[in-house]
């Protein structure tokens, strides 16, 4: 352990310090604070309520709460719809835009636009489309003799309406990742399959798809995490309603924290859902990977 080495390490630490501070300030401290809050009776609006330690009471309340369970189920429902459609559409569009046709580059760039828009704006865009009576979507439906559909004001449609907006925004993400993966695939096996006479479907399902699988699993993993946190679009479009048809976990947490001002319960709900999502998503994707390994 020479002088130079020791000095290098010191310099290393000096450079690292701001990062550590930033990480602590933006991630670790809020996490710890939320953890501390989750064991407390902390009502922001009612300072006359003693802000005392309550043990696991907040967790017990969240876990036994009907609305929490409902929100959890709704979240997974939404996730199932959006992820499956985004997967199918994303791969489909990726297959189209990776064709060597004139203008595909422009098409691809245009398709990425939804992804670059803030979710709040996406919500507003779709609000105009869905708006009861005055919305464009119902106008277009009326032109072909359909509707009107109560997109965001009926319990039958609202979750689907949210899903459509989310699909519109995030399919490009799946498309982009898939297109990149497609372009990195060696073209020669496809020529081999052409000469051998394998059908298009066989080539897609047995050559393309298996090779895309690792990328698709990663893309879906990222989307699953995002989908679990979905908030902005719902907040703009339905705020959880009508009835409780679009009430997802993040809205439940928001309501506990900023409507009932029960910061402790909100924090506990955050941790519970963090654990649930971590466990479920990990299990799900582990099983996917295992399925892939055993096939090999």
């Amino acid at each position: 352990m020479g002088y130079i080495q020791r000095r290098n390490r010191r310099i290393f630490l000096i450079f690292l310090f701001p990062v550590i501070v930033a990480l602590f300030a933006t991630t670790i401290y809020p996490m710890l604070y939320a953890g501390w809050l989750s064991f407390r009776n902390y009502d922001l609006a009612k300072p006359f309520i003693p802000r005392v330690f309550v043990g696991w009471a907040n967790y017990a309340e969240v876990l036994s709460s009907g609305p929490f369970l409902h929100a959890l189920i709704t979240t997974f429902k939404l996730m199932a719809i959006t992820l499956s459609v985004q997967l199918v559409l994303g791969v489909g569009i990726a297959l189209l835009v990776t064709q060597k046709l004139r203008g595909m580059g422009l098409v691809r760039t245009l398709l990425l636009i939804p992804m670059m828009i803030s979710p709040v704006i996406v919500g507003l865009v779709w609000l105009f489309l869905y708006f009861p009576e005055l919305g464009y979507l119902n106008y277009f439906l009326s032109l072909i003799g359909l509707g009107p559909v109560s997109w965001i004001t009926s319990t039958d449609w609202a979750l689907l309406a949210i899903a459509i907006a989310d699909i519109w925004q995030w399919t490009p993400f799946v498309m982009m990742g898939t297109a990149a993966a497609l372009q990195s695939l060696s073209p020669e096996p496809y020529e081999a399959a052409r000469i051998d006479g394998n059908s298009r479907w066989d080539v897609f399902s047995r050559v393309t798809l298996p090779q895309l699988k690792p990328v698709l699993v990663s893309l879906m993993f990222l989307r699953a995490i995002d989908a679990f946190k979905i908030y902005d679009i719902i907040f703009v479009l339905t705020k959880g309603g009508p009835a409780d048809s679009t009430e997802v976990i993040s809205l439940y947490i928001y309501r506990q924290s900023f409507t009932f001002w029960r910061m402790g319960v909100g924090a506990a709900a955050s941790f519970v859902s963090l654990i649930i999502i971590s466990v479920l998503i990990t299990l799900f994707f582990k099983s996917l990977q295992r399925g892939q390994a055993s096939k090999g």
Binding site: S154, T155, G241, A243, F260
Partner: peptide
């Protein structure tokens, strides 16, 4: 009431669910 927001939110959701037929 000091718990007005609890009243407003809870009745808001429950009445809306009733009106929706849920």
């Amino acid at each position: 009431h000091p718990f007005y927001q609890d009243v407003e939110e809870n009745f808001g959701i429950e009445l809306n669910k009733y009106m929706a037929g849920e």
